[in-house]
Design a protein around this nucleic acid. Structure first.
Length: 845
RNA sequence: GCCCGUGUGGCGGAAUGGUAGACGCAGUAGACUUAAAAUCUGCGAACUGUAAAGUUGUGGGGGUUCGAGUCCCUCCACGGGCACCA
């Protein structure tokens, strides 16, 4: 049996000693430099199967590219700031830093046993001052360029703990610890101006052919660009006109009310003189910001009693409402309501008895609200009789002519709020001075280090409670001032780490320009599809922002994006409803029982591995049982990368058997096999005609990142080699060469085994540095081909004919087959379709 | 509600408009073995037939084509993203 325990450790040591995975920093940027990157992990403490899948994919690619002669940058690091460290600190009375670094060490050790081809000299952790120092520098440059600003924004406020909560800390509208009802509160916070780039980020998606369509679409929808008309309406008693945005301005003649958001400046202004309105606004603010709650919320409005003048109908007015379903964060925070053609407006009009005037009519369509854009305008003044698109064009033109409206575009995308009222993150390097306002920390004072002596025994932000840390003197006027106590969203850390990876020890700047020139953009970026929107959009924004700051970085950081599916497993429950780990369960024929007491177990359908349902498989245990090579092989076989994968005990067993099958083959060949005394030229040629096409296909499939198919062909190749040594008539040089190339071909997937085989074949170390084998075109051309014989498109037989056989020859061959000639006998052949090497179709009359 | 994706044996899945089911898992028969495990060799869509062969088959219905898993229309089921976005 193959001794994976010993071999895997042996080769991991040998690779390390020989530094086989270092990338040569002197290499110039050519097409043969490639950057392979897997999304760096959060150091939670344990590697899970999702990580294994992610890194197995990246590693196979990195090794393949290296063998093909590319210089490969394949780094690994840690997305090390974040809330879980603070929670752990609270629970276990440790320091977030200690917890994080201990986790990093544990996970690094777990990764080591998988035999991944990282160059650990490139390692970075975002919580390291050398890293966040550069991030602070970038923040200040963004600030200087006007890409960062401060604005009042709504947060989740826990009134008992008197602190801000992250969205995930709000459960059912209540604080996770206090259980108090969460309120909306307005706080001054930092924002990145991602909306400045909305248009560019949207257009850029068209230049990303290496991204899955799905991800591009998700980003497109997230940016949510829509075109329409902004109207400026006169409001009774106000000097300023009210702006409101609509994508359906042609329905204006069906409008029966105007509504503004509770946070709208006009609403606030009116509330000063109106107690009831003020109470209504208070009510609205008591509702949390969590979207799940908004869904179920009832539409409520407050009639202000104020009139708004219709822009196109002299003397007509519309009542002004403040309504909880109007969002301040989209458009202008004000709308006109057309109940007949909008679901929400319809519900609102019904509740408050407002007129419902139909302005679009489609034959056969009588139910309201009717929201489609098909039909003819009615009750609409000068728009009557027009189609909807005509009406849109006509109305916008008229609005612009009258100066009451303007064509405009709004996006759903909002600026990126980066303020976090937390300890374990990158401190925002500014100082608040009563005299000078917001003052950037001078570069010589960077980094602004996190204070070490913090306690987590009280709620809120430890930086806020620290006795001395925030008290500083103003760098401009010298008066006493206060540090910003907010830290940056951890998504900021992960928006540029791939640039830092190009030159991780660079001191004077976030990255060395020539290193970025050499490696960027990332050739293959691999990770879960759950990052399809936020992380990837932020990273794309960062690239653009950096360019504004004068850095020469590519606009799009990731050329190829590979999104992997989840790793799934059925979940088990015993009769009492307790979740059981897979190893606690045993299969007995068609049923499953609990190992401990043989009681029956219910099995759920396969779903994402999660601790709560205990349907997890520990990578360490699998590696101990079957070896890293078998685990890596299994996680890449059978299922295409972008689909969900079901982990199965049978599957990993099968891969373990294959590892042994390969090793047995090699032992037979190197120890027992003796080359034939007389080589058979025909057999050798037949052998080569099987091996070379396989090699050719397998190379293409590697390049297309279709590892499940790579593995299928790899297995076929091994079977061909088995047959060859059994027959014992293949020319030794050819056989040896085939063994050699097949070892290289398996090495990206099973590097330890490949190395062991390589050594057994008497080759010099290491297979991981060997060049990829080339297939010989001579053996790729088939001499004879199987051609399908069809009658009326239905396949009746398959005949083997010479590759260049003309139609006549094939027809003769067909007639020579009794049952085929019987079918055709006495029938009139209307036409024949002949596709050389593929098909001959007789179309009967 | 809007947008997108997927649907192929018992299972995971293959298949530039041209032989549907590669490869694996599970199954099954045989070889080796005192026996088991391991290993090796077969067999496997369904139905009819001893066989040769035939019929039906890629979620349902329709269409384009000499020929459709693949392209078009429509319906159904499942999965994902967004969601009071005006």
């Amino acid at each position: 049996m193959y001794n994976f325990q010993e071999n895997e450790q042996k080769w991991q040591r040998a690779w390390k000693e020989a530094s086989v995975y270092g990338c040569d920093p002197t290499q110039n940027r050519t097409s043969s430099c490639i950057y392979v990157l897997e999304m760096f992990p959060y150091p939670s403490g344990r590697i899970h199967m999702g990580h294994v899948r992610n890194y197995a994919i990246g590693d196979a690619l990195a090794r393949f590219k290296k063998a093909q002669g590319c210089a490969v940058l394949h780094p690994m690091g840690w997305d090390a700031f974040g809330l879980p460290a603070e929670n752990a600190a609270l629970e276990r009375h440790t320091h977030p830093r200690d917890w994080t670094y201990a986790n990093i060490d544990a996970m690094r050790a777990q990764l080591a046993v998988l035999g991944l081809s990282y160059d650990w000299h490139q390692e970075i952790a975002t919580c390291h001052p050398a890293y966040y120092r550069q991030e602070q520098k970038l923040f200040l440059q963004f600030l200087k360029q006007g890409l960062v600003y401060r604005k009042r924004a709504t947060v989740n406020w826990d009134p008992v703990e008197s602190c801000v909560l992250a969205n995930e800390q709000v459960i059912d509208g209540k604080g996770w610890r206090s259980g108090a009802l969460v309120e909306r509160r307005e706080l001054d916070q930092w924002f990145f101006k991602i909306t400045d780039f909305a248009e560019d980020l949207l257009e850029g998606l068209d230049n990303l052919p290496g991204w899955p369509n799905k991800v591009r679409l998700m980003q497109k929808n997230w940016i949510g660009r829509s075109q329409g008309l902004t109207l400026f309406l006169r409001v009774e008693g106000e000097s300023e006109p009210l702006s409101l945005f609509s994508t359906r301005p042609e329905t204006i003649f069906g409008a029966s009310f105007i509504a503004i958001a509770p946070q709208h400046p006009l609403a606030k202004k009116l509330a000063e003189k109106n107690k009831d309105l003020n109470a209504f606004l208070q009510d609205c603010s008591r509702i949390s910001t969590i979207t799940a709650d908004l869904e179920t919320m009832e539409k409520q409005g407050f009639a202000t009693g104020i009139s708004v003048y219709h822009p196109f109908l002299e003397g007509k007015t519309l009542p002004l409402y403040v309504a909880n379903f109007v969002l301040m964060t989209y458009g202008t925070g004000a709308i006109f309501g057309t109940p007949a053609h909008d679901v929400r407006d319809f519900a609102f009009a019904q509740k408050y008895n407002l007129p419902i005037v139909q302005v679009i009519q489609k034959e056969g369509e009588t139910t309201l609200p009717y929201i489609e854009k098909e039909g003819i305008m009615v009750n609409s003044s000068f728009l009557d009789g027009k189609t909807v698109p005509e009406a849109f064009a006509l109305l916008t033109k008229e609005a612009e002519r009258l100066g009451v409206g303007k064509i405009s575009t709004f996006t759903r995308l909002r600026d990126w709020g980066v303020s976090r009222q937390r300890y374990w993150g990158c401190p925002i390097p500014v100082i608040h001075c009563a005299q000078c306002g917001v003052v950037p920390v001078p570069e010589k004072d960077l980094p602004v280090l996190l204070p070490e002596d913090v306690s987590f025994d009280r709620s809120g932000n430890p930086l806020e409670w620290h006795p001395s840390w925030k008290n500083v003197s103003c760098p401009v006027c010298g008066q006493s001032a206060q540090r910003e106590t907010e830290t940056l969203d951890t998504f900021v850390d992960s928006s540029w780490y791939f640039l830092r990876f190009c030159s991780p020890r660079h001191e004077s700047a976030p990255f060395a320009q020539e290193a970025v020139q050499r490696w960027m953009p990332v050739g293959y970026y691999i990770g879960g599809v759950e990052h399809a929107i936020l992380h990837l959009l932020y990273a794309r924004f960062f690239s653009r922002a950096l360019r504004v700051c004068g850095y020469d970085v590519p606009e799009e950081p990731f050329t190829q994006l590979l999104t992997q599916g989840m790793v799934c497993h059925p979940a088990y429950q015993d009769t009492a409803g307790n979740w059981l780990f897979p190893e606690e369960v045993e299969r007995k024929g068609a049923i499953y029982v609990k190992r401990a007491d043989n009681t029956p177990v219910t099995v759920s359908r396969s779903e994402k591995m999660s601790k709560s349902k205990k349907n997890v498989v520990d990578p360490d245990k699998m590696v101990q049982t079957y070896g890293a090579d078998a685990v890596r092989l299994f996680i890449l076989s059978d299922t295409p990368m972008d689909r969900d994968l079901e982990w199965s005990e049978e599957g990993i067993e099968g891969c373990w058997r294959f590892v042994n099958r390969v090793w047995r083959l090699v032992e037979q060949y190197t120890k027992e096999y003796s080359p034939p005394k007389e080589e058979n030229a025909a057999a050798t040629e037949a052998f080569l005609r099987r091996i070379h096409p396989l090699l050719d296909q397998v190379t293409t499939l590697y390049a297309h990142v279709q590892f499940n198919r790579v593995i299928a062909l790899l297995r076929e190749g091994i079977s061909v080699l088995y047959e060859a040594i059994e027959k014992q008539n293949i020319a030794e040089a050819s056989l040896r060469e085939a063994f050699r190339s097949w070892t290289i071909v398996m090495s990206p997937l099973m590097p330890h085994l490949a190395e062991e085989v390589w050594q057994a074949l008497g080759e010099a170390p290491f297979v991981v540095t060997a060049a990829w084998p080339k297939s010989d075109p001579v053996y790729l051309v088939k001499e004879s081909v199987d051609i399908a014989i069809q009658v009326n498109g239905k396949t009746r037989a398959v005949l083997s004919v010479a590759r260049e056989a003309p139609q006549e020859e094939v027809t003769n061959a067909v007639l020579a087959v009794p049952h085929l000639s019987a079918i055709l006998k006495g029938k009139t052949i209307e036409r024949t379709v002949f596709v050389p090497q593929r098909i001959l179709n007789f179309v009967l009359a």
